[in-house]
Computed example of a mutant assay.
Amino acid sequence: MTTIRHEAEVPLTAAGRRFDQALAEMFPDYSRSRLSGWIKSGAVTLDGTQAPPRQLLRGGEQVRLQVELENEVTSAPEDIALDIVHEDAHLLVLNKPAGLVVHPGAGNPAGTLLNALLHHDPKLAELPRAGIVHRLDKDTSGLMVVARTLPTYTALVDLLSRHEVERQYEAVVLGTMVAGGTVDEPIGRSMGDRLRQAVRDEEDGKRAVTHYRLRERFRAHSLLQCQLETGRTHQIRVHMAHIGHPLIGDPLYGGGLKLPKGAGAELIAMLRGFRRQALHAEKLSFVHPATGEALSFGAERPADQWALIEALRGDLLEYGPDHY
């Protein structure tokens, strides 16, 4: 259990402000909802006494914050290997393999990334979701950042909400594209299937923006670079399917098997055997919340996606771009 202690004087410029509003400005490392909860519990005092969140201040009061961080996560630690790309006292960046679920849930009570993180650093149990601030789908591989302290958690959530974390993906999609573009379509839960997301109208969906660029065009498929401006569930998968180019192997949004004319046995076997969405989070960039340093990380595509792309390249080389 970790104890947080802070003492500070309310600035005179906060005169006339509410206690909870001033506290959020004095301690920006913690979320407003968390600070409000601490005020209500008595963990934050004003001139030595408990005060309501809405109390108006005069300036010059003494604020004392002392709270024992109890475990927010009750899942059990599990010795699951992690591919850690970067680690310091405030955060870690890891390369998640395809097939690893991020959070425990229905059907996946254990064996998740969260369980692995708790084994790597037991103190992560004190943080919401063990410090996980964003997620990747089970069968999407690539880079994720995880907070190791509460202030870093708050700061990373804020960076993500302000779209100041650059997340770049590589995707292999069905169909031959001629150029890149942007999909700006709201996303919400599908009305007909609770496991799926769908493009919805503005009233039912949340704004979602995906920028994509064509890297390579094969005979019946395309290799894309995708940039997230927002971070909705299944965003790239939903957006690509919406414009008629679903990801290869996507079990929810895929368009089925598509073979180039006269495709060889190797490519046919590769396409039929690729049973996950061909999506990899290859680049992650952000400003370190504690040091202010600009950080950028890359992760090579996993072996199965390498093999898929090489098979598509070999097919193109053998038949040429005009042989469909």
Rank of each mutant, 00 (worst) to 15 (best):
Thr13Trp: 06
Arg17Gln: 15
Arg17Thr: 08
Gln21Tyr: 12
Ala24Thr: 06
Ser33Leu: 14
Leu35Val: 10
Gly37Lys: 08
Val44Cys: 03
Arg54Trp: 13
Arg54Val: 10
Leu56His: 12
Val63His: 00
Leu65Phe: 15
Leu65Ile: 13
Ala76Asp: 11
Asp83Pro: 05
His90Ser: 03
Ala98Gln: 02
Ala98Tyr: 08
Leu100Val: 00
Pro104Trp: 10
Pro104Val: 14
Ala110His: 11
Leu114Lys: 03
Pro122Asp: 10
Leu124Met: 15
Arg129His: 05
Leu136Trp: 00
Lys138Phe: 07
Asp139Ile: 01
Ser141Trp: 01
Ala147His: 02
Arg148Pro: 05
Arg148Cys: 01
Thr154Ser: 08
Asp158Ala: 15
Asp158Phe: 06
Glu164Ser: 06
Gln168Val: 12
Tyr169Pro: 04
Glu170Pro: 03
Val178Thr: 14
Val178Arg: 14
Gly180His: 15
Gly180Tyr: 08
Gly180Pro: 12
Gly180Arg: 14
Thr182Gln: 13
Gly188Asn: 00
Ser190His: 02
Met191Ala: 12
Met191Gly: 14
Arg196Pro: 05
Ala198Gln: 06
Arg200Phe: 10
Glu203Met: 11
Lys206Trp: 12
Lys206His: 15
Val209Ala: 04
Tyr212Gly: 13
Arg219Cys: 08
Leu223Ser: 15
Gln225Asn: 01
Arg232Tyr: 05
His234Gln: 11
Val238Phe: 12
Met240Trp: 00
His242Cys: 02
Gly244Asp: 00
Leu247Ser: 05
Ile248Trp: 02
Pro260Met: 13
Leu267Phe: 13
Ile268Met: 11
Ala278Met: 05
Leu279Ser: 01
His288Tyr: 03
Glu293Cys: 00
Gly298Val: 02
Trp306Thr: 09
Leu308Glu: 09
Glu310Pro: 08
Gly314Ser: 10
Pro321Trp: 08
Asp322Arg: 12
Asp322His: 10
His323Gly: 09
Tyr324Pro: 05
